[in-house]
Design a protein around this nucleic acid. Structure first.
Lengths: 183, 183
DNA sequence: CACAATACGGAGACACTCTCCGTTTAGCAA
DNA sequence: TTGCTAAACGGAGAGTGTCTCCGTATTGTG
């Protein structure tokens, strides 16, 4: 890639993170272009769709998924505690931007999605947690990682759109956790 | 209301049902106006916001909620079966239009929402089901009707946006049901 | 330093929302 | 019936956003 192109790309991403954090997933892309000091054409050439931009923006964030998951897996407490801690981490991770939870959860399991790779990282992390619990026989059989991501993602979407706080989300996650654990 | 106003209002609603069914919650309102043979001004005078239109459209649908709930409550089977049957009914009811589940679930518990009355009917129905199960000691304590609507609504939102079919939704609902039932 | 190849940018087509206001109509009172 | 007024109509157009096209400018290589 030519040096000027690389410069613009980086600049757009930097500004996009800022704008998306301020205004959520629906922010105007022309505004991003303007603030980045490039023309609309440049933005759309680098990122043909909003999802492509999202995907690139989330690149740095992906590393945190693995890291956070490691931390959860290493933490103390009962199986239920671990599962809940993971749920809360997951919700936090996908709630980086307003509209994010719905976006990510919708893309989950859709091979066509431009943010597919990110979803795979997430469901991969979920799989690790579930494998860990599964080995100890803590999980009821027949639930897979993508399903869990959808369930918890559904809760996160509702929380995001209704602007629920952690205290309101917690009991919902508890129900999901209890539904997943072996009895 | 003047006779012509009433006529136009009815016509707009009739067309809106059709268009929303075809195109989901995001359908253009100008298209609704055009197809109804009225000007945009007329549409917006009757229904200042998209939600006001949604609300009016759902009026006839509200009656079905009570009826469907009655049917579920009268049905045979275990507590778990009853709960699952109710969940599936609920998902079906709020999935009338694309985008409906997210819309309704977001509005749930928001006193400012224009479709508030509809949400109350829904959470009221959920409360009836839960009361019935609660009397028999089938539910774990501390879950309220609005929470359940949010959980099931979250599942419905995901299903709606990812276009999941009934078979894919069922296991998610089972997890929620198992999480809610007393152990 | 010349000259492709690559990238830029912004005007503009198109779509949607919503308002404003001149025009039309319903319905009542005489 | 007729005349009148409040009520309602409708569509042009302003505002905002998406996305493309293509003439112009920049890069970096031979």
């Amino acid at each position: 890639m030519r040096a000027d192109a690389q410069r613009n790309r980086d600049r757009i991403l930097e500004v996009a993170r800022e704008v998306f954090r301020e205004q959520g997933y629906d922010a105007s892309l022309d505004l991003v272009a303007k603030r980045a000091g490039v023309g609309a054409g440049t933005l759309y050439r680098h990122f043909p769709t909003r999802d492509d931009l999202m995907d690139a923006m989330m690149q740095s964030w992906v590393d945190r998924v693995t890291e956070s998951t490691d931390k959860v897996l290493a933490s103390e407490g009962s199986d239920r505690d671990l599962l809940l801690r993971w749920f809360e981490t997951y919700v936090e991770l996908i709630s980086l931007h307003k509209g994010g939870p719905a976006k990510i959860t919708t893309a989950m399991g859709n091979p066509e999605s431009p943010i597919r790779s990110k979803c795979q990282v997430l469901s991969g992390a979920a799989a690790r947690v579930m494998e860990s619990l599964g080995e100890r026989g803590a999980l009821r059989p027949g639930v897979d990682a993508v399903q869990v991501c959808r369930l918890v993602g559904g809760v996160a979407s509702v929380a995001d759109q209704s602007e629920l706080d952690g205290a309101a989300v917690r009991p919902l996650l508890e129900v999901v956790a209890d539904g997943m654990l072996a009895r």
